[in-house]
Amino acid sequence: MPNEKVLKLLKNSHVALLPTYADTYGYFVLEAQACGCPVISTDIRALPEINNNECGWIISVPKDKNGNGILKTAKDRKIFSTIIEKKLYSIVNEIILKPENILPKAEASIERIKKEHDPEKHANKLINIYVTSRK
């Protein structure tokens, strides 16, 4: 699906889901949050730096010391999947019972993007790093 259609879909959605086993960075979460769409995600790899329970919902899963999901054996994967399934059910049920919780998280998502993930601010930081390193 073209990115413009994804963004349009996110702008018309109440909640996005990324209960992933191994996402590398979480650009989808950033795009959703920028559209005011709070996200349900796991807490692996870089996702805890992007999503939290103030601007979305977190599913805590078994991780190693590097933040990667523990998925080496069939038993590990079964435990991991069961945790995601149960927690996802719980969160979606909570959202259905208390839809008034969506708007504050949506607003917090947009504010978090503006404060911590604004592309112009990041570009300026990179420019400053490059300019400073040349001196």
Rank of each mutant, 00 (worst) to 15 (best):
residue 78 K to E: 13
residue 78 K to V: 03
residue 78 K to T: 08
residue 79 I to Y: 12
residue 79 I to T: 14
residue 80 F to N: 00
residue 82 T to G: 13
residue 82 T to E: 14
residue 83 I to H: 03
residue 83 I to E: 05
residue 84 I to P: 06
residue 85 E to V: 07
residue 85 E to P: 04
residue 85 E to W: 01
residue 86 K to N: 15
residue 86 K to L: 12
residue 86 K to P: 01
residue 87 K to T: 15
residue 87 K to S: 15
residue 88 L to M: 10
residue 88 L to N: 06
residue 88 L to S: 06
residue 90 S to Q: 13
residue 91 I to A: 08
residue 92 V to N: 05
residue 92 V to Y: 02
residue 92 V to P: 05
residue 93 N to W: 12
residue 94 E to S: 15
residue 95 I to Q: 01
residue 96 I to L: 13
residue 97 L to A: 11
residue 97 L to V: 04
residue 98 K to G: 00
residue 98 K to M: 06
residue 98 K to P: 00
residue 101 N to V: 07
residue 102 I to W: 04
residue 102 I to Y: 02
residue 103 L to V: 10
residue 104 P to E: 05
residue 106 A to P: 03
residue 107 E to V: 05
residue 108 A to G: 03
residue 108 A to I: 01
residue 108 A to V: 04
residue 109 S to N: 07
residue 109 S to I: 06
residue 109 S to T: 04
residue 110 I to R: 08
residue 110 I to D: 00
residue 111 E to H: 12
residue 112 R to A: 12
residue 112 R to T: 11
residue 112 R to C: 10
residue 113 I to R: 00
residue 114 K to M: 07
residue 114 K to S: 03
residue 115 K to N: 11
residue 115 K to D: 10
residue 117 H to I: 01
residue 117 H to R: 09
residue 118 D to M: 04
residue 119 P to M: 07
residue 119 P to Q: 09
residue 120 E to V: 15
residue 121 K to V: 12
residue 122 H to C: 03
residue 123 A to Q: 12
residue 123 A to Y: 11
residue 123 A to E: 09
residue 123 A to L: 14
residue 123 A to W: 08
residue 124 N to R: 14
residue 125 K to W: 07
residue 125 K to D: 13
residue 126 L to C: 09
residue 127 I to F: 14
residue 127 I to G: 04
residue 127 I to D: 03
residue 128 N to F: 05
residue 128 N to Y: 06
residue 130 Y to Q: 05
residue 130 Y to L: 14
